[in-house]
Simulated scan of single mutants.
Amino acid sequence: MDIASEIAKALSEYTTEVVEEIDNIADEVAKNAVNTLKVTSPQGRRSRYGKGWRSKKDGKGYIIYNATDAGLTHLVEKGHAKRNGGRTKAFNHIQNAEETAIKDFENKIERAIKR
């Protein structure tokens, strides 16, 4: 028995388990963020905006996007000038969901590492 190969094998198995755990946590956090955005998105004449939130796995992580009204996300988040003057109200729903997702991800990773 070669001890170096046994150590390398054990580290490889541990690394695989950690990567799988992190991927599971990222998937769960992305789903929670999508659900949060669906609930906290402003409702109005364009009620499909809130229903359009989706997530997809990218090579390095997850992307959360609005499939139905992607062009509105910045306008709703930051507000915009109206046609006849004035501005619309800004709804910081994306920023709030992002901050919550980041904190949730960090906490779950820390708990997973401590096990």
Rank of each mutant, 00 (worst) to 15 (best):
D58F: 13
A30T: 03
N24A: 11
S47D: 12
D58T: 15
A30W: 02
K57W: 08
A30Q: 05
K57D: 08
K38A: 07
T36F: 08
R48L: 14
G61W: 10
T40E: 13
N24W: 04
A33D: 01
R46W: 15
P42L: 09
D27V: 01
P42K: 04
T40G: 05
G61H: 11
G59F: 06
E28S: 10
G50A: 11
V34E: 01
I22C: 09
K56E: 14
E28C: 01
E21A: 08
V29H: 01
Y62L: 09
N35C: 04
V39P: 00
Q43Y: 07
V39M: 02
S55L: 09
G50S: 10
I22K: 09
D58G: 15
I25M: 07
K31H: 06
S47N: 13
K60L: 12
D23M: 10
G59S: 10
T36L: 12
K57L: 12
K57E: 13
K38S: 07
N32R: 04
R48P: 05
W53P: 02
V29S: 02
T36C: 06
E21G: 03
W53T: 02
N32I: 00
P42R: 06
A30E: 04
S41C: 04
G59T: 06
I22T: 10
T40W: 05
L37M: 14
D27C: 06
L37D: 06
L37V: 10
D27T: 09
T40M: 07
K60F: 12
V39A: 06
K31P: 00
N35G: 07
T36G: 05
S55F: 14
K60V: 09
G59I: 03
K60T: 13
E28D: 09
